[in-house]
Design a protein around this nucleic acid. Structure first.
Lengths: 340, 340
DNA sequence: CACTATATGCAAAACGTTTTGTGCCAGTCA
DNA sequence: TGACTGGCACAAAACGTTTTGCATATAGTG
């Protein structure tokens, strides 16, 4: 890697002016220069290994080609990777780079990080959360292009994208009903968040479609952890006419349900069918038998967010949209017809 | 957020020249301007909400204050978050930002991404892998400051940081021996990678310290997945004089061992003790009982990498170092004295 | 042949900083 | 008083681009 060749070097080597090099290399302006010289210049630039300095062009164009991604607790959730990857792939396809920043739950730190992003002249930012929630975005984001990822903002002027929680619940119900289950219970997250409401509502709607409903004692809520799922499942499965199928808020809670079933000597899926939500490979694939689950579309949401951001950058008047993306079923081996 | 105030605006508002503002605001140069005017300028700048344009200063200083982080499959591993967070925290503490890029296993794409990073004038890059391996870094990194993270490079000119695999194995042995176990087996990853060798060697060394050794039929290797761990454990635990403790290459494999134990009607930890490596919260905390495991120090390695990079940026002649960072034991409930 | 239109290339200004060199002024010393 | 110092502030150049407006040469038109 020779020591930094710039546009002036290329111009000199090609025997033309900087202007001409710039024009030749820019898709939009190269009509201003002879096709032959364009070829020549491109060849010279290639030989010299010229690569434009984006700091300089960013400064000149008032467009850094950098997008900021600010997220909360990236560490504690395995979803972060997929989200970042989705965003980065989309950014990269459009010649942009991603600046990632995460601040845990420290609001002051978050504001600071956002300001740092702004100093670096990011063209826009994606404000990401690690689970679907309602947020109010920090004031420093006012007036700059921003998209809310895996959350909805109290500011309707911001486009946002979340999983279709309702649809996930509905599909889970369909799946279980189609397998022949009639006594189905749900283990929900006790927290008051959109994900919990959406999945439950969807689940109910799915049952209702088939003339069924969720009896009050077939819904138990608990902490959204393995232990929480285990305790809830223990309670449900110990009942006299225990359910033949369980819909769990998350794969983690489903893992708890597996433990409860094992503890009670119940076989999955023959004695009890289980479906989760998340499609955490680590869990869903690791459980034995494999867990059928509704996949949370983190990769797609990440993509969608930057694509939308790029669109709004292109056209600031583009309509804001609040997208819900589908949660496809990933079938493994935890669902079977009921026994009796 | 008013429309971008620059240094010229501050100068005008403060009734001084741009030069003076610049000097006043720079820690190193503000001796060149009267203490009183410094105060005044800072006040004015504060009121106006002035924030320097880092594109411009980067251009002028030949120092972007941006670090690149290129990683492989960030999506499929839950470690990525901790690594990125560690790196980002350290960067942020030193006024730098992180540009994250990941290219899966596509080498061509990786080179492209690195070039994109270079166009944005990153000051240095961290070349990260998701598990300890030997790598040869892409040619485009030649001649630019770089650190290898969670891998060692065939190029000794590059500093690198990896987990102390040997130490992890050794500590696991110590733990199990101290609990009173004498028949201990290991389930190792069948892949030919430093992690597998290091943990095995360390484990053997730990046993040797206490005059024990690992019988040949007490070591079984398998795929590094839950299923792999399950199969291996099934084999080990079905033996006539089954081991009373299992050291597993990873938490995932340990999860498989749990399943095998459950299948055979063995209780953990009373019938068999288990220890893993990784400390994946999702698994180690989710298993029942909780899994005692050696934590892989991804956060610390991420931090170390950027700190070292910053050091080498400061002083290009700084000695290259190949760091091993300790894997502390995280005790939960999967280890107890053997029964008989 | 004169005149205009078009094709091609260039010089220069601008983006927002930082830093070097210089000038001015007030003291200080001889 | 004249020369010198140090403190303070400023103008200007530079970092590497992109783009506007202009200049030249060539081709096209009547």
């Amino acid at each position: 890697m020779a020591t930094k060749v710039n546009i002036r070097d290329v111009a000199k080597a090609a025997g033309v002016s900087v202007t001409t090099v710039s024009h030749a290399l820019s898709e939009t302006h190269n009509s201003r220069v002879n096709a032959q010289t364009v070829e020549h210049i491109k060849a010279v630039a290639g030989n010299l290994g010229y690569a434009p300095n984006r700091l300089a062009s960013g400064l000149r164009n008032q467009r850094s080609q950098i997008l900021g991604l600010v997220s909360d607790e990236i560490t504690t959730t395995p979803f972060a990777g997929a989200m970042i990857q989705g965003a980065q792939d989309a950014a990269s396809e459009h010649g942009h780079l991603l600046m990632v920043v995460n601040s845990g739950l420290d609001n002051e730190l978050e504001r600071q990080e956002i300001r740092a992003l702004q100093q670096h002249q990011v063209d826009g930012v994606i404000y990401a959360r690690m689970y679907n929630q309602r947020v109010s975005v920090p004031a420093e984001l006012e007036g700059m292009p921003a998209i809310v990822l895996d959350a909805t903002s109290d500011n309707p002027g911001l486009s946002s994208v979340v999983p279709d929680e309702f649809g996930a619940g509905q599909s889970a119900a369909e799946l279980l009903v189609a397998a022949g289950h009639r006594r189905i219970a749900m283990i929900n997250n006790e927290d008051d968040i959109p994900a919990a409401h959406g999945r439950l509502d969807g689940f109910r709607a799915g049952l209702a479609r088939h003339g069924m409903q969720l009896p009050v004692d077939s819904l138990v809520t608990s902490r959204p952890s393995t232990a929480g799922g285990r305790e809830a499942a223990l309670e449900l499965l110990a009942a006299a006419d225990r359910p033949t199928a369980l819909f769990c808020f998350s794969d983690q809670m489903a893992m708890g349900a597996y433990q409860a079933a094992g503890h009670l000597g119940l076989k999955i899926p023959s004695d009890v069918s289980i479906v989760g939500v998340d499609n955490l490979e680590l869990i869903a694939d690791g459980l034995w038998p494999g867990l059928s689950t509704m996949a949370l579309p983190h990769y797609e949401m990440g993509r969608w967010a930057v694509l939308k951001l790029l669109e709004e950058l292109e056209n600031p008047k583009a309509p804001r949209v609040h997208e819900k993306v589908a949660c496809p079923l990933v079938e493994r081996d935890s669902v079977a017809p009921p026994q009796d």
